[in-house]
């Protein structure tokens, strides 16, 4: 196992659409192990996508279990926890609701911003052995899956920023 180098924007690989995985073999499993180790070696990271280490394949890992136990925000309190999810060729089938939350990215150092995401999603994905699974995610975990799935389509959270002023108006005038 090895910690891989995380590429950062403007590396053009972060803006490309990744290819589906077709071979569920030992090479894939070894890469997934490295990708997970890379995520664990990155302080605070709850997810990682293969393009972030320069590999343009539809593979992401999400694990919010360490964070949601701290129960800080509403989105974390409401979060599902499917443990460590290794999602290969993930497809988000349904998405409901809209929540704004703050995001940063291993591939975009020194910036965080507000992003609107679906509050709850259901998805299908394959595991490294090629078995298909269905998941339901909500709250913080749903946000993490959507952030990582975006990487597979060449999208960064920078592509989805909500302007502070817009956020201001939406939040304030709703509360009044």
């Amino acid at each position: 196992m090895a910690v891989l180098e995380v590429v950062s924007y403007p590396d053009e690989r972060l803006k490309r659409v990744s290819d589906p995985v077709v071979q569920f073999d030992e090479a894939l499993q070894s890469f997934v192990a490295d990708l997970e180790q890379t995520m664990r070696a990155s302080p605070g990271a709850v997810g990682i996508a293969a393009p972030q280490v320069g590999r343009l394949q539809r593979i992401v890992i999400v694990d919010v279990s360490s964070v949601i136990n701290r129960n800080r925000t509403k989105e974390q309190q409401n979060s599902s926890s499917n443990g460590c999810m290794i999602l290969i060729n993930p497809e988000i089938a349904r998405a409901e609701g809209r929540v704004v939350g703050r995001e940063g990215c291993l591939s975009v150092p020194d910036f965080t911003g507000n992003v609107a995401r679906a509050a709850a999603i259901s998805l299908t994905a394959f595991d490294p052995a090629g078995r298909r699974h269905e998941y339901r995610c909500k709250g913080f975990e749903a946000r993490a899956v959507q952030h990582e799935a975006d990487h597979l389509d060449g999208l960064l959270f920078l592509d989805r920023l909500v302007s502070p002023r817009e956020l201001f108006r939406r939040k304030i005038y709703r509360s009044i």
């Binding site: 709850v46 925000t73 989105e75 995001e103 990215c105 965080t112």
Partner: peptide, 13 residues
């Protein structure tokens, strides 16, 4: 003065 406090937890991924 009405006030709402929302903790911010930044997702990193």
């Amino acid at each position: 003065i009405e006030a709402t406090l929302t903790p911010i937890a930044t997702l990193v991924g």
